[in-house]
Write a protein that binds this DNA or RNA. Structure first.
Lengths: 257, 257
DNA sequence: GTCTTCGCGC
DNA sequence: GCGCGAAGAC
């Protein structure tokens, strides 16, 4: 028996938004310590890593681990039916073939219940190692989103070049070339949310598909800040913290020169 | 070497907005006295005339005149990436094949630099003579915009009929006909921005394409007022003053009856 | 291509 | 807080 209640159904909406563009279906692995999801997009270019710890749930019950294979699209459709302030309760039996979702409006005057059929997806496991990074950049998530949007108007590949002094995002296309440079915040009075910090072990330059990076930034509503972690010849990690719950992070392999 | 700095990148945005619907590319002629642009739309119906004097620039350096052939669309895309309060610096070498644009945020924590390839556009010159006009109408630019928008819902051609007493904008279409008449402001306490004045040498009536006139009114954000200058059998001049810098004006040949 | 939605600017 | 413009969905 699995049962978990979120105060904000809309939070799961925000989580699914960036995921649904990348994968059609995925296993939600529910365990006593929380819910996690690892999935690669169909082209095996990006890896999604989601963790929701039990702490952030209103109630959470899961005695035995179970894996819920879900169509992201179906789940997303279901969540569209939730009011913006509705709570969400998820329930599944021990050998489930469906997941039940309950939306309740704050005043309790409206209750929706959804039954979604589970898919048998097999059990791909991805090992994710948290290595040392040559650079870890923290910046306002909206700023990364803006940068990706701006660069996309001109090019398809972004070169990210980071050192202690700043981060340069570059692209080029038919009409010319374009660089955006951001510098670490020096104004110590700035709120942590608005500030840019760079932990740089060594200068690093990597190329990435702008399309995917732009997809990732659909997670912007989840967090005011985003972390970009880069190491030479390794996938970049774009990480959005989910308050009280955990994180949603994306891995994207660099493009070769 | 050409270098010019504008405090408000958004000003160039506003200048390009009405231009980009009319022409794909144009020469920006930079000289020691300022920047000018003359261009006709592809159908050779309208002529655009832009002048930016050096006074309005924060800094301006141009020893030798040069002509920068630019895709208006590319330039417009570049400017979309500028924050609303960013400053804009334009730079070109003496025999340039690119124009460099630099956007800097007020706090200097974000710098964009753009290189736009120049186009070889040839050197069409248009002579513009400032004649005597039968009527010169000054009115709030937003009012002209509103009039064009309203008339467009009904017809495709506007008849402008001006004399000392007022200006009548008329159109007719399938569902009927529509006149809007404005009269000179008599209230001397009215601000100059809000007032309507008519200098009328002789009554005049001309017909114009509403589509083009409506395009011109996209320059409304540039100036609180607009001047309409008309003479029999000659193009109307629709002129927007750009504070401290110069003007953007449009010429449109009248339609025959 | 049209319509709706969301984000940004006024 | 309202209106406008751009982006995404059908």
């Amino acid at each position: 028996m699995f049962e978990a209640k979120l105060i904000q159904a809309s939070l799961l909406k925000k989580i699914l938004e960036p995921i649904k563009d990348l994968v059609e279906s995925a296993n939600f692995d529910c365990s006593p310590s929380g819910i996690s999801l690892q999935a690669m997009d169909s082209a095996h270019v990006t890896l999604i890593n989601l963790l929701l710890r039990t702490d952030g749930f209103e109630t959470y019950n899961c005695e035995r681990s179970l894996s819920l294979g879900l169509s992201i699209n179906a789940l997303s459709k279901a969540l569209k039916c939730a009011g913006n302030d509705d709570t969400l309760t998820m329930k599944a039996r021990d050998e489930p073939d469906t997941l039940s979702l309950y939306f309740e409006s704050p005043k309790n005057d409206r209750v929706c219940d959804f039954e979604i059929k589970l898919l048998d997806l097999g059990n791909d496991q991805y090992t994710i190692r948290d290595t040392e990074y040559a650079a870890v950049i923290k910046m306002p998530s909206s700023e990364l989103q803006r940068i990706c949007r701006d660069l996309s108007t001109l090019g398809e590949v972004v070169t990210i070049c980071a050192n202690k002094e700043g981060v340069k995002f570059s692209t080029s296309g038919d009409v010319g070339s374009f660089n955006i440079t951001v510098r670490p915040t020096t104004d110590s009075s700035a709120k942590s949310e608005d500030s840019i910090t760079i932990e740089s072990k060594e200068p690093i330059t990597l190329n990435f598909s702008l399309k995917f990076l732009t997809h990732f930034t659909k997670a912007t509503p989840l967090s005011p800040t985003v972390k970009i972690k880069m190491t030479d010849s390794a996938p970049v990690v774009v990480e959005y913290n989910i308050e009280d719950l955990g994180y949603l992070s994306f891995f994207l392999a660099p493009k070769l020169e």
